[in-house]
Amino acid sequence: MQAPAWLKTPSSHGIAWIKLSLFLLCLIPLIHLGWGFFNDGLGANPVEAITRGTGDWALRLLLVSLAVTPLRKLSGLNWLVRTRRMLGLYAFFYALLHFITYLWLDQFFDWGSIAKDILKRPFITAGFAAFVLLVPLAATSFNAAIRALGGQRWQALHRSAYAIAIIGVLHYWWLVKRDITQPLIYALILALLLGVRAAWRERERRRQLQGGIPGRPLKKRVIPIQPG
């Protein structure tokens, strides 16, 4: 199936509109939480609603950012990759709000208690680790950083998003009291997103093994982990 030209290669004007719409769309959860907080709209336990809402959206946007490459490959819409940075940064933004909510509204900056929590409670350890690992990704998400690191190293660093997503889902899994339906849904989506990458990589590896490039030893012909 061939996508129409306007969808396959939108104008730079079109891309700008797509990005602006996406930017506003990703703000909706924040507006909803902010409005609800000041208007008694978050139920009986607003702090819990904020903690949960920011955590949900951090994880959701992380998964959405990891869905960009598979969607691009399946649809042939290469411009999708141009939304990935914003989606990743929004995931970090909600993770940051989630972390601040914990530090402030849950712990009231009681550093001793926070340290104990991080060391003693596996779900807090996982959540904290996922957040800390997101920081270098957010910090190197502008063009100058990509140039300074070099494309290969930048990609190697940003592949840690896979591990962060796994840790993020574990964080959710370990905190639920009994019913694991919700974290299971996230885990299945993540498994799909990572599985499709592994399958593509394996297919590419086999293709290269069979095709071969004359005059080069076999192991050099086999591609390393394909970025993306």
Binding site: A44, N45, V47, D106, F108, K116, D117, R121, P122, F123
Partner: peptide, 16 residues
């Protein structure tokens, strides 16, 4: 095992 029981949030209050 997964959280402290030292404090609580009274519904309707922001601080613990």
């Amino acid at each position: 095992p997964r959280w402290s029981q030292e404090t609580e949030r009274r519904i309707g209050e922001l601080t613990k």
